[in-house]
Design a protein around this nucleic acid. Sequence first.
DNA 1: GTGCTTGCAAACGTTTTGCAGACTC
DNA 2: GAGTCTGCAAAACGTTTGCAAGCAC
Lengths: 156, 156
Amino acid sequence: MGDEALSGGDTGSPGVEEVLGLIRAGGGRVTSTRRVLLEVLLGSREHRSAEQLAELVQARLPEVHLSTIYRNLEELQRMGVLVHTHFGHGPATYQPAVGAHAHFVCEVCSATVEVPPDLVARLAEGAMEHAGFVVDPGHFAIGGRCARCAGDRHRA
Amino acid sequence: MGDEALSGGDTGSPGVEEVLGLIRAGGGRVTSTRRVLLEVLLGSREHRSAEQLAELVQARLPEVHLSTIYRNLEELQRMGVLVHTHFGHGPATYQPAVGAHAHFVCEVCSATVEVPPDLVARLAEGAMEHAGFVVDPGHFAIGGRCARCAGDRHRA
DNA sequence: GTGCTTGCAAACGTTTTGCAGACTC
DNA sequence: GAGTCTGCAAAACGTTTGCAAGCAC
């Protein structure tokens, strides 16, 4: 597919129609599955699993199959519209590439907290200095315990 | 047999016999599978997948089954002897809890680089200040591109 | 009409689980 | 002997793939 910039001149996430236009420009077809998936996906900044996305799409298009969701997610990632993150166990989660953040994820209660950008920046800077490593801020989750669960020691 | 002399392990990694003693003290049985698994596991600081560990154990005890490895790894984690890490795709990897580090993992070539302790410390400090979040330094891998792969941009 | 996309089913790799027999204590 | 641990088989889980029919262009 093309490697053109996504933005149509605005500052936020690309719109559904923009992405569909890119797909068409690259020789792809615009299907209702793709339109609905993009609406669901770009409509929020939440990260969602493939299965959750399938359910949301199926609310409007009951025939859509999970494997179709996976295939479209893969292509949207190739296009740079989405990124996915692995939260320890459980399924990968997908979110729009624009505005993707790193996350802390609680290993006890699974709560997630966005990592503040300056912390990520400091880590990325250190990684570069130490090892020439370019950190991908949208693609990792950092495990630990959230404030609540860290407070409860052993509740035996 | 083991060629290491690990004793009174309060500063270094616990020795095989120490852990076996703990198992026995908890009502567990000392089996040859457990002894060999511990020797393989504590004998290096490398992180290895369950399947790799199974192969290493099977070199000495060919009958050992993968599911037995998983069950023992799970128990050793409950005991705090081991931790596991998820490296994006692929299987989880296991390493001794003592001396566990965070890792950068290259998303292109899969190379791993240890994250320097002071960087982890700074991140952990920031996480605590920002959200009261207690980072678990042994349980996450940070994606990105290593120096070599970051140099090659798009080789289109 | 061309050929990209889809639904379905089946395979995949990793991890977990149920069970009867083997073993440690 | 009692209770833990093991091998085996099979399932569970998230994800990928092969194929023929369906749809956008």
